[in-house]
């Protein structure tokens, strides 16, 4: 029987263009660039890059979830990998801190967080692709008609709090906030 595995990654390279896109800044003048660099100096090396995951046959779970998007997505798969990824609490700390004293920095850290978690997911999905060969692009609860309530079962299976320190609240929000849960379909 397969169990939940965990992985830690080294820091993926930062994509500043992508960060600025998340920061809703089409072109960065000198002051924005120096703000971004200040934030990057403060965050580099301080994040965790953790993933926990499990591979299961597609009929093992979510019996009562009705989602056309998910059914269609899984129609050509036998198995899927369910994973949860987080870059840890440090970004939440910095965002909380700066949202009280420097919303500009908080905003920039928010953008960095968005870029970081995507970078982590990309790294993980690439590794899964190497391992399983034929995989589909990931999809997450909340996408299309996939209900956010699926998060409960995902958390239940993956034991996220224990494996990677990721928690879920009543409103289906994750803490640390810079986190993702998703499915990767493995093609037949």
């Amino acid at each position: 029987m397969s169990i939940v595995l965990t992985k830690s990654y080294v820091e993926p390279p930062f994509d500043t263009k992508e960060i600025l896109r998340y920061a809703m800044c089409k072109d960065a003048d000198e002051s924005v660039t120096s703000l971004l660099n200040e934030c990057l100096d403060e965050i580099k090396g301080k994040l965790a890059y953790k993933v926990c995951y499990i591979e299961l046959p597609i009929d093992a779970l979510f019996a009562d979830v009705k989602s056309e998007v998910l059914s269609k997505y899984l129609s050509d798969c036998n198995n899927y990998v369910i994973f949860a990824a987080t870059v840890g609490i440090e970004l939440d700390r910095l965002i909380t801190k700066y949202s009280r004293i420097s919303p500009a920095k908080a905003h920039m850290f928010q953008a960095i967080g968005a870029e970081r978690i995507e970078a982590l997911c990309d790294t993980f999905c690439e590794a899964i692709k190497q391992e399983y060969k034929n995989t589909k692009p990931r999809i997450s609860p909340g996408y299309g008609d996939m209900p956010l309530e699926m998060q409960r079962e995902i958390f239940n299976i993956l034991d996220c709090p224990r494996k990677i320190g990721l928690t879920l609240n009543e409103s289906m929000l994750m803490s640390p906030t810079k986190s993702v849960t998703a499915f990767i379909g493995v093609l037949k």
Binding site: T96, R162, T167, N169
Partner: peptide
């Protein structure tokens, strides 16, 4: 006694 699986305030909502 294990953890509740919820994160306490200020970073969580518990």
């Amino acid at each position: 006694i294990g953890p509740t699986g919820k994160l306490l305030k200020p970073y969580g909502d518990f």
